[in-house]
Design a binder for these strands. Structure first.
Lengths: 389, 389
DNA sequence: GGATATTAGTAAATCGATTTAGTAGAATCA
DNA sequence: TGATTCTACTAAATCGATTTACTAATATCC
């Protein structure tokens, strides 16, 4: 890395490039460089290395070596170099990225697969991915599959066909090994060639149960995630395990599951109604994510319960709207942005270290319990008249 | 368009391609095609047209013509064609996208510029863009500038350097004409070569004032957007105009402005506190967007007012969390997804029609007032003891 | 039977770079 | 003076396709 190229294919642009922006755009009417290139050349299109070379009476080779600051240009006198740089700048020469990529077999491009772009979760991870990638000179293609099996199947191949150097799969299954490095966020299956960035779900479950039980909750209801959600299984296992350690009994009637792929609070609303219908009293509810927690609160209110006075509700993820909600949600924060960044960083490292290098199978990040206003002390067992029956 | 290519550079994949996925990935240990290509060729890398041709004892030309269903392949007997297709499938031939793009001068790639990826607005537009683009065989690069002038300046050039065929700028200024077609979403300035997809703000203002005044509100407060927001100016002008038509007096003390670039409700909270501090009574508040409306509600509540009983609040955009909020926000819905789709559609059309074709300067979409629970009848002027003084 | 058309392809240029292996001429060394 | 080194470059191959302009062989027509 470092400041190697005149035009910086892979890295951040030099000052030079910024300056060049001025003329980088529409051909200005006036101020066309003194003698236009041999016979006005190709209308509209930017100048090529060959044309620039012809104009200078040099070979493309020379220009390439000089502009790339190749050590092989050591014998070229400074004066010639200056001429070349001046001409490049004057004619606003921009190397053709496709040509360079083809030749160098490097595309500096990744693919990112997400379930959904409008749901508060993926964009957050994406945001972390983005920030790191662009700063490292990479760009990325995004594809969202909206849980369609057909798209989950074919997008990885379409992205590979686009010469990506690696793939980041966010909350998306990787059905089989790919020919390039893959980093998956929030996946737990082991697939050859895939590094998984995962949350420490044991810790998340422990933290939450600790907290709720300290508040005096014993009757805790749970909403599991949709079957297609990557975290559903693992998180549930962690909860069971933590419950065992905490000596908490999990009543089957107090377990519901999200259904349908609506990214709205509706599935959480429905699940909570089922819980209420089961007539098994509970004083706290641990939802699969923030959005379903919001649906749950709505259902509880609809049934006449106050949150948090009668029932405490804990969400998961800490998406933007969690903090804005009324009451502000107590939730298990996943450091989504950091996870995105870590995924990007790991992927670039893997790309740099070649296909045969060893790679981590799992990278774990820690959750954080964010206590806001949707949780409170458990109501005294048989006193509160509004207590969930 | 249509089903032209064997491998479908630009369009949706044929069934063939799906089937091919099976072998498209890691080289399986077993089931290597009978005779490997001449001397095992290039380790790991996918087979090239030349190699495939050599293996078949034909020229690359022939394969190219056949695989692309070129009319020039008319004289090639079906048997040969079948051989070629079989070999392509058997060796899992995938054309090199960079090479094709270089030759054909088409990248089937766009750039999308957004301010922020985690804010509920851009991802929604992006989602509409995405869905249309992928279905048309295009991919896109995303870059988020987070309102940094430097990035707004240089990203368009970086994207152009990546051979994009056009640019979509979401809520982002286009500082100067680019050499490729641009569609801007929610921008109102006229820049050469830029098509603007805009909301009918006159209608939005009218709709809202109509509604509020019918509910009996006369003292209406306003929160204007940040200066960097594309819609701020236009929307305010529309509001002034609608107020004039409705005979509504806008009191300077009832106008606040968002400050800072936090994508949280905090700026709305601060702005509302300023309004309250001005001591000028109001019964309704029209916020610049949903997020600031949420902040406003928080501030109002903090000051002891009920929403909507004491003060009605109207948001703008209808982001996901607007409906989830408590109370659910009454808001002016921008059809963000449709705007994204329209932008994408328009851009592809412009690309197809060439650089010299005429293009629309503005495309207007209609807002919709979504009435939920943050608005109600104005409290009787001097009765309600909780009325804003 | 010779001219023309058709069949079944191929050679070579091209897209726009990078990179290896030179080369011609001047300068230096022994 | 002849060999060697250095300077200042360049020719040509290459990346992996597409595409135009051919050709050789066979078939058809008059």
């Amino acid at each position: 890395m470092g400041v190697k190229f005149f035009f910086e294919l892979p890295l951040k642009p030099l000052d030079l490039e910024i300056t060049m922006c001025e003329t980088a755009l529409m051909p200005r009417k006036k101020k066309v460089p003194a003698r236009a290139l041999k016979g006005a050349s190709r209308a509209g299109r930017p100048v090529s290395l060959k044309e620039l070379a012809a104009h200078l009476g040099l070979s493309p080779t020379t220009l390439s070596l000089v502009l790339n600051q190749s050590p092989a240009a050591g014998s070229i006198p400074q004066e010639t170099k200056d001429r070349i740089f001046r001409a490049a700048k004057g004619f606003n020469y921009r190397p053709n990225f496709l040509a360079r990529s083809l030749r160098s077999q490097r595309s500096y491009t990744l693919g990112v697969l997400v379930p959904e772009l409008g749901d508060g979760y993926s964009p957050m991870v994406l945001s972390g991915v983005e920030q790191y990638l662009l700063q490292e000179g990479y760009f990325y293609f995004v594809a969202s599959h909206r849980h369609k099996a057909e798209l989950i199947e074919k997008y990885p191949q379409m992205l590979l066909d686009r010469s990506i150097e690696g793939l980041i799969a966010i909350d998306t299954p990787v059905l089989r090994p790919l020919s390039r490095p893959v980093v998956a966020v929030s996946r737990h299956d082991e697939v050859e060639g895939v590094t998984n960035v995962v949350l420490n779900h044991d810790q998340a479950a422990s933290l939450t149960l600790d907290y709720l039980m300290e508040l005096g909750h014993q009757r805790i209801a749970f909403i599991k995630g949709q079957v297609f959600s990557s975290d559903t299984q693992v998180r549930w296992t962690s909860i069971l395990e933590a419950a065992r350690r905490h000596g908490l009994r999990i009543r089957p009637a107090l377990v519901a599951q999200l259904e349908g792929d609506s990214p709205s609070p509706e599935p959480g609303y429905v699940a909570t109604q089922k819980l209420l219908a089961a007539q098994e009293p509970f004083t706290a509810l641990f939802a699969f994510n923030d959005i379903s927690a919001i649906g749950a609160i709505r259902a509880l209110r609809g049934a006449g319960y106050r949150v948090p006075e009668d029932v405490s509700v804990v969400g998961f993820d800490d998406v933007y709207s969690a903090a804005f909600h009324n009451p502000a949600l107590t939730t298990v924060r996943q450091p989504l942005r950091e996870m995105g960044r870590l995924a990007a960083e790991t992927l670039l490292r893997r790309i740099a270290s070649g296909p045969d290098a060893v790679y981590p199978k799992f990278l774990t990040v820690e959750p954080e319990l964010v206590i806001r206003h949707s949780t409170a002390k458990a109501p005294a067992r048989f006193e509160g008249k509004r207590q969930v029956r």
